[in-house]
Structures are given as C-alpha cells and as structure tokens.
Design a protein around this nucleic acid. Structure first.
Lengths: 341, 341
DNA sequence: GTGAAAGCGCTAACAT
DNA sequence: ATGTTAGCGCTTTCAC
C-alpha cells in the first residue's frame, strides 16, 4: 500500500488527527505544526486513501450520470459539462450507458448498485413513473429529460411542448402546410417523443392546419439511420410533406440525407427542423435549423442540485426546472447558403 | 448505512467468514448453510460495500479512461466499447476529459490521483516520452493513440503512417496531383499529426508527386471549425488543391462545408478523405471517404490489457498492438450519389 | 466446513 | 491546539 496518515504522523511527530486536520481542514492547526506536517506529506508523497475515507464517512464521492445513448452528441456534450461541474465540486462522475434498456434502468432506479454511489443523475426512457415512485432507497436522484414526471425528485427538462410548438410554428411561418413529424413512439416509450408530438399537434391546430396520420412516422431508435428510413417512407407517400419536424437533430440529419438522395431540394421542396443543436447540424449541408436547449446549463445544474441533496443542503421541495431553449434558424428552413460565421 | 455482512451473519446464525464465502466463493460452504445464508441475503437485500472491500484488498475497482476530447465522436464511440468491457470484467470505468491540457496529463501520468484508481488507459497528446518514463508509480498504464512511443507500457495504436499512406494513395489512384494535408501541428503537439504527415509525404513521394509547403495547413485543435478555417485558407491559394487529406473526420467534415460554401464540387473539383469513420461521415452530404480504425477492438483490448496487468496475470513484456484499419470509400472521393445501404 | 479476530486507513467524538 | 480511540465493512489467517 502507499503512504498512510500514520506514516506522516510519525514523520512529523504529531498525531493522526492533526495530520487529518491539515489535510481536510476540519479543525484549525497551528502554523508551525501545519508546516511540519505539510513537509512530511510532500516528502513522502502522501495522498489520501479514498476507500478508507469513504468507508468511514459513508460516502463514496461518486455520482453516476446514466444516459440512454453515449453516442448521441447531445448527451456527450451534456456529459462534458456535468463531468467538469462534478470535478469542480470534488466529486467523481461515472457515466453509465443504459441504452434505454428497461432492466438496466430498473436496477439503477431501485438502487441495487447504490453502495457505490452517493447520487444519481438519470435520464430514463423505458421506466414508468410508478417504478420510480416505488423506489425505496434514499440515495438522492435527479431526473433529466422527459422520461418521467411528477415524482418527488429534482427534475430538469425543457418544456417539450413549448419547444416543439416553437419548431412547428417556425415551419408554419414559412408557409408550410403539410408538416410531418418523425420520431413518435409506439406506446409510451420515451415520453418526450409523446410530448413533442403533442406540441406538434398543438401548433398545427393553432395554425388551423389539419392533422394527418400519414405524416407522423415512428422510429425504433433515435439515430441518423432511423431518420433516414422514416424520411424515405415519407417521400414514398402519394403527397409527401413540404416540411419535417424531427424529434431530434440526429433524426433530422438522417432526414436531410434521405431528401438529398431523393433529389428533392431543402428547403424549397421540404424544410427540416430538429431539436438539440448538436454540432453536426452546424456543419451539415445544408446546415440544420434547430431548437437549442442549454446543455451546459442542464449538465451543471443537475450536478449542483444532486450534490446539494447529497450534502443535505436544501430543505426545499424538489426543484422542477425548465431550462431555456431558443430557436436557431439555419439553411434547412431558411434556404440560401449562409457561410458559417 | 445499508445491510452489512454482520446483519446477514446474525440473521442466518453463522459467522461473518461464512457469509463472505457464500458471497465470494473463496472457500467451499456446506449446501444447507449456503441456502440459509442466501435466503438471508435475499430477504435483507444485501449488497457488499465496495469501499470496505477495496480498503481491505487494496484495490478500488476503478479504472480511468483519459481522453483529450469527449466531444469527438471517435472517442465517444471508443469509450462506449471500453465502458462495456470494463463493466463485464467487474470494473467501473471513469472517464476523464483532459482537453489535451498538459498539467492535467502530467497529474494523470505521474499518478497523484492514483489512490483512486487501479489503472489508467491514457490517450496523451501534450506530454512527452520522457515525462512518461519519469513516472514512478506502479499503477498499470495502457497507452492508446500516438502521443508517446517506446515506453515500457502496453500500447495500442494503428499504424498511422500506413493508414495515412493508404488514404493518400487512394487520392493518388483517383489521379489527384495537388493533394493537401490539414491538421499538421506546429511543434510536436499531438504526435499522431506528425505521423500522419509523414505518411502523407511518403505516399506523395511514392507516387512521384512533389511536396508543396503551401498545401499543408496546421490547425489549433482538431474539430470541425478547424477544418473549415483551414480549408478556406487552402481555397484562397492561387492554385488550390484538387484533393484534401484531413487528420481526422471532424476536420474533413469542416472541409466539406468550406468547399461547398465556396461553390466548388466534391469530388470533381476537390476530393476529401479523413480518418476515424465517425458516424457523421456516413450521413454527411456528400458522404465521407475515410480510413476506419477498429474502435470497438481498441476499446475492448485496452481494457483487457489493463485489467490483466492489474490482476497480475501477464509476465509478458508490454504489448504493442497495431489494430487493423481499412479504407472505406464514399462519395467525397468517388463521387456520384450512393444511397446509404 | 466453520468460527474468531486482526487490521486495512480514515474520521469524528471525546479528552486534554 | 492537539492527542486518543472506537469503529466503518470487509477479507483473510489461524484456529478448531
């Protein structure tokens, strides 16, 4: 094993507790003593054994961020912000890719793995509200995204209905009348798909446009290939849409490709909008109009809220935060060639 | 705290050691006893406290994967494979984004944080060979990528010179004579940029093509925006290139965009090839020709090698593995419209 | 096949 | 301001 507190204590001729206090600063230490101890630490190259500390204190210093797809740049960008924030607050963030798998999600939510982590930031997709409610462990839990609502935990998610409404409203303002939606889910899998669908219908209604079943396509996953396939089926329709609202940017990018392959022009024939503002969409051809949630904000806030709970700070009721979003218009709806800044 | 071994022991009327053996199977346990213990475990919902186990065993069960950019899909894809492999072998993988920062890399390599981790998988970019050699701690280290060579650690990296050679050779076979390279680094920052540059020169020489200083552009980072800017400067040349070999796919995608903005055709006017085979390039317009390293293989192998060292398995000298790569031709060099399978 | 007990390194309550 | 000490939950050696 490495150098321990005891080694330092002996070297500096002080007690264990004093060394601990120099390291952690829980109690004041005399200047002369501190210096001697610090010197011993430097000489011997001491660094604390976290397992021991955690065994003693009952905390591990580990928080878990569980997301459904590490491959999705949306989550990768969000995770980056979360990792930095956690590190800044003295915690280690471990990422867990659930792949949307029900069993994995259940294990995480009910907390069999809880002995390892102080808290969990969770973006569920397959799990139900009841299953989260049934959770018995007291490890703090912060939910992000729209998998589950109305549970007694901090929750951070953009207003999906409003965001979708804004997206579709943008297409309407461009005088599109046959607006498709890609990404609806059969059943309730991925709740946010449903919410975004609602926002879509709401905006259609507000614009006095009819709703057409044919123009809604569900997808198995939420990746580029799903968008490509869905768009192809839309293009095969007797009367294809003149605009597409995609559940997310990845799907939208797949749709862009399908439209291009079919020889249709964007946005002249078909305009496309997504949600997420991933970097791909800023550089695609054409560039992708999107609704941008503040990922940095979401990632940091989730970590802050979680750690506040872990450390017993807030007596407040669970937060329910709706982070800001904004419409970013680009070539896929506005047309033209708009050189990147 | 949760349920402990002691609770189980009392409930089942056996000793601590017996419960431990049921859980870990180090020693045989009588069938009847095992059953009683197992029942107690199930009833009380016991799961071992890892901090205690690790304190006792001197291991943490944590391995760290340190990469320079979590945002780069190449690393995100590789990380996914590594996380799964680690989990399968009973380890927790923690990701650390160094952002290529020298200080962060030094701390990681010299091992101040070592008490927390059993081993490190490291993709260095700013650190030197000497600094890695100077490392005093014995925590196993596996290097991936080309930051550092000839150090006494397992090392996994594609043959960069050969990969670059193959890429440039492909452009040559398309009868391109003015082939540019984007991503060279001033100084030795990111060694692989230098190696890919060497492969580029080698292929030019092999084809009997002259080397032109003007056609080599260095970039600050390795992202889409860097590729965009570099390509713009190339387009401003009196005699722009007729092909571009980019350090990676992200840069290549930025270049695609710049070429499109300038109204040139791909590949008719300028052909583009990258390295990495990230998903973006499979769906871009045009789709991107690339050299594909086997990311899944690299991620899994790195974890396997590391854990073998941690568990003291191999007496073998450090591996130096060159994972396979292959050329994937797409529209950005072949032209046409090639519908995605 | 099973039990008793030492001790991993640390923190915090209790002394001085 | 500093020291002493009791465990946190577990693995493992030594007994039986």
């Amino acid at each position: 094993m490495g150098v321990s507190l005891k080694d330092i204590a002996e070297r500096a001729g002080v007690s264990l507790a004093t060394v601990s206090n120099v390291v952690n600063g829980y109690r004041p230490v005399g200047e002369a003593t501190r210096l001697r101890v610090q010197q011993a630490i430097d000489e011997l190259g001491y660094s604390p054994n976290l397992s021991a500390r955690h065994l003693r204190s009952g905390r591990t210093g580990i928080v878990v961020l569980a997301i459904p797809e590490l491959n999705n740049p949306y989550f990768a960008e969000l995770a980056g912000a979360a990792i930095r924030e956690a590190a800044g607050l003295g915690y280690t963030l471990v990422m867990e890719d659930t792949a949307g798998d029900r069993d994995k999600e259940l294990i995480l939510a009910t907390g069999s793995r809880l002995q390892v982590m102080d808290g969990l930031i969770f973006s569920p997709v397959s799990i139900t509200r009841e299953e989260v409610l049934a959770r018995s462990v007291s490890t703090p839990l912060v939910l992000i995204g729209e998998g589950v609502y109305d549970v007694p935990h901090d929750h951070i998610a953009i207003d999906n209905i409003a965001a979708s409404h804004a997206a579709v409203q943008h297409l309407v303002s461009l005088d599109r009348h046959r607006i498709a939606f890609i990404g609806s889910q059969p059943g309730d899998l991925r709740q946010s798909a449903h919410l975004r669908f609602l926002g879509y219908r709401e905006a259609l209604a507000a614009a006095g446009l009819p709703f057409e079943d044919d123009l809604v396509v569900s997808t198995a996953q939420f990746g580029r290939m799903d968008g490509l396939r869905a768009m192809r089926s839309l293009l095969d329709l007797p009367r294809p849409p003149d605009a597409v609202f995609a559940y997310n940017d990845l799907i939208a990018i797949g749709a862009l490709r399908a439209i291009g392959e079919a020889g249709r022009r964007i946005p002249d024939d078909i305009a496309v909008i997504g949600i997420d503002d991933i970097e791909d969409g800023r550089f695609s051809t054409p560039t992708l109009t999107t609704v941008a949630p503040d990922k940095e904000y979401i990632g940091r806030l989730a970590v802050q809220a979680l750690i506040a709970r872990i450390e017993g700070k807030p007596v407040s009721p669970p937060y329910d935060v709706q982070p800001p979003f904004r419409l970013i218009t680009r070539e896929s709806t506005l047309g033209g060639l708009r050189p990147i800044r």
